[in-house]
Design a protein around this nucleic acid. Structure first.
Lengths: 223, 223
DNA sequence: TGAATGTCGATTGGATCCAATCTAACAATC
DNA sequence: GATTGTTAGATTGGATCCAATCGACATTCA
């Protein structure tokens, strides 16, 4: 039988405003690749599809602009931002900075239960085939290790850029075929040992190898 | 006599849309403290003051929400976000991560001219008394050292959080009375020497001392 | 022929209007 | 006396309408 909190939780998933609904759906569509880079986002067209007026569309596009997912130009409208190697490197640099800080602040507060959950997620990744689900799991793994940092803004920003990285995941998997599970396990081991330097080194390796793999992919593609 | 480009430049300072104008002005007002934390931002009221309709106000508030300057709650409206020690610590952690990355990527590309300009800004800071101008100069100093990183997203995010830090500057100066000029100079010296580790260490000291000073201020205030 | 200008359709930015939601104060009930 | 229901006012969310801007194509003039 469903408890009261279950019902509240389920109800809470619904969107409170049309703007929220549009923003969340568009974001999902862009990250999943349903709206390829360069796609112009015509307000009137979107209003028709979502069955709302143009105003919530506009407000949603503003939010996506702030998150770096669409480009906005006065009187010309919004387009889905292009993806490129430069963009990916930018994303990696940002994540490198943010995730290192998150890990630094979180590590001393991590409990055994946290690390056990991280282990479970790693096992799930091993069993998973679907690309978009793997992105979700990867994100949850990382955020599980950072959650104890107790710095909400830092964590929100970190998660935001982890989500943005999903756009590059398909390219990354096309080359390596794996998710850097070795580094994932090394990070957990270092956290269990309370070895901050080792944990940061593993994180750095994790991001560096992913970055280099992606750079190689883009390099061969342009050649 | 003014050249054509001068005229265009002056005209370019004007805002292309009402939304841009409102967003920029509100942001300035919040960071300068003209709109204290907790102030409710009534859309109708703002529309009257800016002499525009409520729509550009709403879009501007959305942008400020994305930048973490105002809190938005459905049907209840927007308020200027509270400042607190927790918030300041969050900001320092984010800046620590981002600025370290920016410096890492920028340092190898810094020219002597860049460092000379940084020196000039330091001298200007020494001569300056006005608090808000000092914030501006401090920001320009840091960004001058990071500009060669060639990662536009990282730089934009870094600057955004440097701007946000202006809100705490007055508290900081109230305790220390100085701007961490020693560390500023150490950063330049390390950059000139091409010593990445020393530069990063100086940056870390810079942020740590500022953070501890602020924590002390908040601690004594609450006690 | 080629560059500058004018016109037209498409699209966005902004204003106004109406509906939905929240807050607060007061009345009613247990 | 405390909780609940009700109602009025304020405020926001969303729809519709109008004006300003941009791009492309046709036109004109050197």
């Amino acid at each position: 039988m469903a408890s009261l909190s279950d019902v509240i939780e389920a109800g809470g998933r619904r969107f409170r405003t049309a703007t929220e609904y549009v923003a969340a759906t568009l974001k999902q569509a862009i990250l999943a690749g349903a709206l390829p880079p360069g796609t112009p986002l015509r307000q009137e067209d979107l209003a028709g599809r979502f069955e709302v007026s143009r105003m919530p569309i506009r407000e949603a596009l503003r939010q996506l602009e702030a998150q770096g997912l669409v480009d906005f130009e006065p009187h010309r409208g919004a387009i889905v931002v292009e993806i490129s190697l430069a963009d990916a490197l930018d994303n990696f640099a940002i994540r490198g900075g943010l995730e290192a800080q998150a890990l630094r602040h979180s590590l001393p507060n991590l409990t055994a239960a946290d690390l056990d959950r991280a282990d479970e997620i790693i096992a799930e990744i091993d069993r998973e085939d679907d690309v978009s689900r793997m992105g979700e799991l990867n994100r949850r793994f990382h955020m599980t290790l950072y959650a104890a940092a107790g710095l909400p803004r830092l964590l929100a920003l970190t998660e935001q850029h982890l989500v943005a990285a999903d756009r590059y995941l398909r390219f990354h998997l096309a080359t390596d075929g794996d998710m850097g599970q070795v580094d994932h396990r090394a990070m957990i081991a270092a956290c269990r040992a309370g070895d901050k330097a080792a944990a940061l080194a593993a994180l750095d390796r994790h991001l560096s190898t992913a970055r280099d793999g992606l750079a190689g992919f883009f390099g061969s593609r342009s050649a």
